[in-house]
Amino acid sequence: MNAAPDRFTLAARALHWLMAVMIVAMLFIGVGMVATVSARHEWLLAIHKPLGIAILLLAVIRLAVRVRHPPPPLPADLPALQKLAALASHWLLYFLMLAMPLIGWAMLSAGGYPVMLGDALRLPPIFPTSPVAFAVLRHLHGAFAMLLFLTFLAHMGAALYHGLIRRDGVFASMLPAASRSIDGDREEVDADKADRPSAARQND
């Protein structure tokens, strides 16, 4: 029964939830700080830069974990289009969580700013100073942030769809072992479940 893993490894799950909080916080911090002239602009930016670099480091670790430990397979009965959407959105998320901090770092470098992560901690520039590159990268940082937010919304909606509608164990695969009843709980039989083909994944 345990041929394929039914959930992500502990490291993958821990990284997923930690980074989920960090990335969503970064999106709110980002749009919040550029939309205010109050002191919030200053202290949010002071959080934004080190938190963004922390996401970059974690994303590298996470990708390594992902390559070493492939995730549990999606339910066999999941329509091909949904499978493709899941796969594509996951790789898009990986791409964006690496690209966003790199672009942030590169755009400050291109703008000739010292990349300060604190009062005295400074990162070296990773791009030559260029106003044209600054403008392009700064717009890219904003556009990719919107793409990341939309992908996150779709991802959250899909996760809830798996957990509440399909109840196929996909949501549970990202949860701690103890909290299985949220999703794919085989003991709970109801009409709702009966009209769905059962998931191929062995959850019990």
Partner: peptide
């Protein structure tokens, strides 16, 4: 309170003028 406002507004002004230099 003028300081964060200056920082935020200068960044916006800077983005506009560099975008114009880049002919975006």
């Amino acid at each position: 309170p003028l300081l964060p406002a200056r920082s935020a507004a200068y960044a916006d002004s800077y983005l506009r003028r560099t975008s114009e230099e880049a002919h975006l």
